[in-house]
């Protein structure tokens, strides 16, 4: 505020200028370049979505003749809305499931002393070392045997609980002082209510971080939904958009319009949970 209220050429401003160190200039320049690299594709995506088919290869950022036709076309195509709905439903269900079960298991591992606790924790953590690609075949065989192929449950079940989420929540619950839980115990609450009413509200930043990562991870998931679904009605957005490319000989403007629409929930998640994101990223930094 003080800087804003200072008139140009005033001594305060000159003093501020002198305080700018070369290191800071470097940092800001690098951040600016990073920002440009990140934002440019996004801008091109929106730009292309406003171009007609003929203009797609005209690489100007601001379209010569902007049009909303692509949006009208995509939104009036029932399939797109269906995929959008599928993705939303799946990402929401998986997120809620993760927040619930990962927290429950994390809390148990953090706050209850039982025989084999460490072993259980190591077993859960060790699953982090197995890449998804290795698990896809067992998942598929399992789905086939249970009749889950081409169902919502089939798409969702591998992600309903994650080792990463359990680990994250366990670490966070460990920082909740035992006195809070014991006070509730003396007050007569049962263990489930203590977890829900006392412990959970105290780890909201961790829950937000977990929710953000899970939602985004599932919103953009491609590989498993592609494998486990056959019917177009069950496609998620990424799978649906990729099918656009194959069957219609790559209609870039349509793909970019679909992609632009697909980023809306992501942006919403970021806007709503913005204040938790920095902390969440710091916490989950190990995820890479």
């Amino acid at each position: 505020m003080a800087a804003l209220m200072t008139r140009p050429g005033s001594p305060e401003l000159a003093a501020n200028r002198r305080n700018i160190r070369p290191g800071r200039v470097m940092v800001w320049t690098l951040l600016f370049i990073g920002g440009v690299i990140m934002v440019t594709p996004l801008l091109y995506m929106f730009s292309t979505s406003l171009k007609s088919a003929g203009q797609v290869y005209d690489l100007r950022l601001i379209p010569a003749a902007p049009t909303l036709d692509n949006y009208i076309k995509v939104l009036s195509d029932g399939r797109f809305l269906r995929w959008f709905f599928n993705s939303t439903l799946i990402a929401l269900c998986v997120t809620l499931s993760n927040v619930f079960f990962d927290s429950l298991v994390g809390y148990t591992l953090a706050k209850f002393d039982f025989r084999g606790r460490y072993l259980v924790f190591i077993a859960i953590l060790s699953t982090l070392m197995i890449p998804t690609e290795m698990l896809v075949i067992p998942w598929y065989l399992m789905s086939a045997q249970f009749g889950w192929i081409d169902t919502y449950w089939g798409i969702m079940f591998p992600g309903m609980m994650t080792a990463f989420g359990t680990f994250l929540m366990k670490q966070f619950f460990e920082s909740v002082p035992n006195d809070f839980l014991e006070a509730a115990r003396v007050d007569g609450l049962n263990e489930f209510t203590i977890w829900w009413r006392i412990a959970m509200p105290m780890v909201v930043p961790a829950i937000s971080a977990l929710a953000i990562f899970t939602f985004l991870g599932n919103w953009t998931a491609f590989f498993w939904p592609l494998i486990v679904t056959n019917s177009r009605e069950l496609y998620t957005l990424p799978v649906g958009l990729s099918s656009f490319a194959v069957e219609q000989s790559i209609q870039w403007e349509m793909i970019m319009t679909g992609a632009a629409l697909a980023t809306i929930p992501t942006l919403l998640v970021f806007l709503v949970l913005q204040r938790f994101i920095v902390r969440g990223v710091m916490l989950a930094g190990l995820k890479g």
Binding site: D179, E182, D187, I198
Partner: peptide
């Protein structure tokens, strides 16, 4: 603990940060 009908006050107070003073006091009656 709940069946013993005793109340305990802890060193770090153990009052819940997400509740108001009234809710905290009332929590003993949950």
């Amino acid at each position: 603990p709940k069946q013993r009908n005793i109340a305990m006050v802890f060193q770090n107070y153990a009052i819940y940060p997400h509740m108001t003073v009234g809710q905290n006091i009332g929590f003993g009656l949950y």
